[in-house]
Amino acid sequence: MRQYAGMDVSGLTRFAKSTHPLYYGIIGLIAIELTVVAMLTVSYSYLMFSSPEWPPAGLEPAPILWPSVNLGLLLASMVSMRWAGNRISAGDRRGLIIGLSTSVALHMTVLVLRSFEMAAFEFRWDDHVYGSLMWTITGFHFTHVASAIVGTVVVTILATKGYFTPERQLGVVVDTLYWNFVSAAWIPFYLALYWGPRLV
């Protein structure tokens, strides 16, 4: 069979940053994890609505101040990540590093506050199902914040080595995507865990 030249692709970009397959791969990962978030939230609501009292008798709903502060910090870190991405698009490596480090610092603060908050819980995970849910869901999100931090630290190290340029910034783009997921995943948990018991 004769083969003839239909097109030449030697000039196409090798760096497509927001149409690269990896970009869609991370979206796939986020879709999976969002389903997990949804499953946990639904399980929480299911058990909440099927219980006569929520939280169990003798307990007040968990304090809402620090989780709200955390929510603010998480949302702020999305902004600083976005800013970091804009800086490297403009070719500003220093801006990128500052943006990434700020975001990591914000998430670290969240982890510290979260640790204090969990230490102050008046119940254990094996006391009742409310305790099980609080510990599991907070722990789940804690682990995700921790992985977003370590991942972004690696991206920051690569940034200091000059790996990222306005063309080659896929690493920053996909890290930001995942970062945004981890930060925003707190919203449904926050509403379910801290507002749910107050509203029903």
């Binding site: 995970w125 094996d126 199902v129 305790g131 099980s132």
Partner: peptide, 13 residues
């Protein structure tokens, strides 16, 4: 770790 998600006595289902 003895959580109670599926244990009725602990409020699970």
């Amino acid at each position: 770790v003895s959580t109670g998600f599926f244990v009725p006595e602990m409020g699970g289902d």
